[in-house]
């Protein structure tokens, strides 16, 4: 190639970007849509079974208890505080702040494991009692896998924040991790309403 060629110089473009400018953000969004659809399928199945059943929950099943699921919901919502703060710290490229808030978020994450178990028990029905019990357990379970992955990811990432391998471009990953957190908390709210409150309607 010897003829003069016009060139577009990319060397000064940034390498750490956030939100819709970042690849990871889009990938995360994609998986959120997939998992959101998964949960939607559970809810659709729940209502399909419900409209085809005379009483809901079917006798002699009890109504679900509200206490622990509500506690869990509140804890989930409260966890958004450190997560939002972590998100902001990431955008400021503030490593100490990021570490601090990820540690707090990790503590929350650990509590979810216990509280999720309480969610199951509070359904007051076993998965093999009837179709109602099955779909309720499966729905909590599907959200449970998302919850579990988020907990694992958070714990690992927190550890990673304290290692010497952390580089500037990982701030963007941290922001994506919080992005996913919003989704997993947000998606629980409708499920909570459907599973624990709607049977009383």
């Amino acid at each position: 190639m010897t003829a003069p060629v016009r060139m577009m110089d990319a060397s000064r473009l940034p390498t750490t970007v956030f939100d819709h400018r970042s690849h990871m953000w889009w990938g995360t969004l994609g998986f959120m849509l997939i998992e959101g659809t998964t949960l939607f399928v559970c809810v659709a199945s729940y209502f399909y079974l419900r409209v085809n059943t005379d009483s809901w929950p079917p006798d002699p099943a009890e109504l679900p208890s509200r206490l622990w699921p509500t506690v869990h919901l509140v804890v989930l919502l409260a966890s958004l505080v450190p997560v939002v703060l972590a998100d902001r710290a990431a955008r400021r490229l503030d490593l100490p702040g990021l570490r601090r808030w990820f540690v707090v978020a990790s503590l929350f994450a650990l509590s979810f494991l216990y509280l999720r178990w309480k969610d199951f028990v509070s359904l007051n029905v076993w998965w093999d009692d009837n179709a109602y019990g099955s779909i309720a357990w499966m729905t909590v379970g599907f959200h449970g896998t998302i919850l579990f992955l988020q907990v694992v990811e958070t714990l690992i990432f927190t550890g990673f924040l304290f290692s010497s391998d952390f580089e500037e471009r990982h701030f963007s990953d941290a922001a994506d991790s919080t992005f996913y957190w919003y989704f997993f908390v947000g998606s629980w709210v409708p499920l909570y309403l459907v599973l624990y409150l709607s049977p009383r309607l």
């Binding site: 659809t37 559970c42 199945s45 079974l49 059943t53 109602y132 019990g133 099955s134 357990w137």
Partner: peptide
Amino acid sequence: PWVAVASQFLAADRLVDTRIFDPAAGG
């Protein structure tokens, strides 16, 4: 995701006795 969920329902009905598709138990 629809078939992924459905196939897990089916697997659960078969493995742990959930009753999602069982007409005898409201499925």
